[in-house]
Design a binder for these strands. Structure first.
Length: 494
RNA sequence: GGGGCGUUAGCUCAGCCUGGUCAGAGCAGUGGGCUUUUAACCCAUGUGUCGGGGGUUCGAAUCCCUCACGCCCCA
């Protein structure tokens, strides 16, 4: 038997332990365990306990066994629950000889409950000294290597539970995300915004320029789309008289996967009646600062080695000025498309010769400027061609009152003074339809129902959308969007 | 779509350039010892489709081709 066992692999050995436990009448998948303390509570409550001192107080804790150091008739375990770790001081003396011997059926990764006195060891480690130890769930597969954890990024994403079980950083990111979402909601709620929910399944995928996922509704026998944005339904609510609304929800874009793109991502959109894009700049600043405080506890953070202080004024420059500065020559709304093409050629920026000037300027911006903007920068007044839902600029109607917030070299927020004129909106949709006919598969679809809503009258408003995953990535200096998304999109395992 | 890097034990990795005891280490596991450890330690010990397929060669984890998957960069 011993000879056989040594020839077995790790998984088989654990299965054998499982059977051995059952043979002894121990249920390896227990129903429940009534714990009365978390490891964090113990750490707080007994912080003053001196080395070598016993508290005289008994607690019941539960969690995963993630460490075990055996010393003959004395062993030290590490129990991890949702709040932290605590050491288990396992002695044959306290536990009893039989229970102590039963440790041999335990493995790292098992879920256990322990009841015992809180003590601090001679070496100063706060511990629970169990008089009773209960197996709650037997783990049949080993945890990742205890020192390095999971390094294989693909495995970390596919089996995020192992990443969370062994990687403090992964747990911290998850917690930071929750705090950030709460802060965003808190900030908006405090300003009188009402949280709403609008359709994910839409007959027309509007509100942005992106290729949607298509699905099919069986009973209606029509194709439907997963939303690429929240915008057009939130605007309908403005038509209905709701003055401040927001939604935080998943949106979907059928595009590539990269450190900056995931096919599904979380978007916050907020709309404010009687607001302009200047108001949206202020709202955006407030939301980003609230997020930073929630995530990092301060309004500063570091991005790729560069410190950023959110309390410094955020530059506000026009798109054309930003491009002009980058290429070292005048670029304005008057610059003919031929001149822009020449600049693109010089800089090695690829383009479609059919593109209008506005689209080319945006391309130049994205290729030459965007990735260099580390500290938050507001880039404003985007061309009409690329911004079909924004109001024409009050001074130069060739551009719109549309700004992007760039942080960490990526677009975090687009926002507008919203277009309320239904006839102008119709003209923009026509313009997009022409671009679609010319082969642009990311052109905005024509949305007749939305035009009807606008014809009923939408109050003047500002609106903004915030990429929640991207902002969190920047604030936590995460190397990839996939680090802040628990289960990023991956090709399925064959 | 193009380019670069990667894929070796359950996990973390070495070996590849320069083909020939090159199937290795640590962790995890197994057996033994140990009543104050903190990646505990000490002794003993098992572990492989070297990503798949094909080729070159007397001989391939190693060189070549190809496919798959992943990561990064570019379009």
């Amino acid at each position: 038997m011993t000879e056989d066992a040594t020839a077995q692999d790790v998984l088989t050995v654990r299965r054998e332990k499982l059977e051995r436990l059952r043979a002894k009448g121990i249920e390896p998948f227990a129903l429940r365990f009534d714990r009365d303390a978390t490891t964090a509570e113990i750490a707080g409550k007994f912080a003053g306990l001196e080395p070598g001192e016993d508290s005289g107080q008994v607690v019941r804790v539960a969690g995963r066994l993630v460490g075990l150091r055996e010393h003959g008739k004395l062993s030290f375990g590490v129990l991890r629950d949702g709040t932290g770790d605590v050491q288990l001081f396992l002695s044959a003396e306290t536990l009893g000889a039989d229970a102590y011997a039963a440790l041999e059926d335990l493995d790292l990764g098992d879920w256990i409950g322990a009841e015992g006195e809180v003590v601090r060891t001679k070496r100063g480690e706060l511990s629970v000294r169990p008089a009773r130890l209960v197996l709650l769930t037997k783990s049949l597969r080993p945890l990742p290597e205890k020192w390095h954890g999971l390094r294989d990024v693909e495995l970390r994403y596919r089996r995020r539970y192992l990443d969370l079980a062994t990687n403090e950083e992964a747990r911290a990111r998850l917690a930071a995300r929750a705090r950030m979402l709460a802060a965003l909601r808190g900030h908006l709620d405090g300003l009188g915004f009402v949280e709403v929910e609008t359709p994910v399944l839409q007959p027309v995928a509007g509100g942005g320029l992106a290729r949607p996922f298509v699905t099919h509704h069986g009973a209606l026998d029509i194709d439907m789309y997963l939303r690429i944005a929240l915008e057009l339904y939130l605007k309908r609510l403005l038509v209905g008289g709701m003055e401040r609304v927001y939604e935080i929800g998943r949106t979907f874009r059928n595009e590539g996967i990269s450190p900056k793109y995931n096919p599904e991502f979380t978007m916050l959109e907020a709309y404010q009646a009687y607001g302009t894009y200047e108001d949206m700049m202020d709202l955006t600043e407030g939301l980003v600062k609230a997020s930073a405080e929630a995530v990092n506890g301060s309004r500063t953070y570091s991005w790729r080695g560069t410190g950023v202080d959110l309390d410094r004024p955020w530059p506000r420059i026009t798109l054309h000025d930003a491009v002009a500065e980058a290429v070292g020559r005048d670029v304005t709304t008057d610059t003919p498309v031929e001149d822009l093409q020449r600049v693109a050629d010089e800089r090695g920026v690829g383009y479609d010769p059919a593109w209008p000037a506005g689209k080319l300027v945006v391309e130049l911006f994205e290729k030459l400027v965007e990735s260099n903007l580390v500290a938050p920068t507001i880039v404003k007044d985007f061309p009409r061609e690329v911004s079909p839902l924004a109001r024409p600029h009050r001074e130069d109607p060739r551009v719109t009152e549309h700004f992007d917030l760039i942080m960490g070299g990526v677009e975090i927020v687009p926002a507008y003074s919203e277009l309320t004129d239904p006839d102008e909106q119709r003209a923009r949709f026509e313009m997009q339809r022409a671009q679609a006919a010319a082969g642009d598969d990311e052109a905005h679809p024509f949305d007749q129902e939305f035009l009807v809503a606008l014809e009923h009258g939408m109050p003047p408003a500002g609106g903004m959308g915030l990429g929640v995953d991207r902002l969190l990535m920047v604030l936590t200096d995460a190397p990839s969007l996939r680090e802040v998304i628990l289960f990023p999109a991956l090709r399925p395992e064959s």
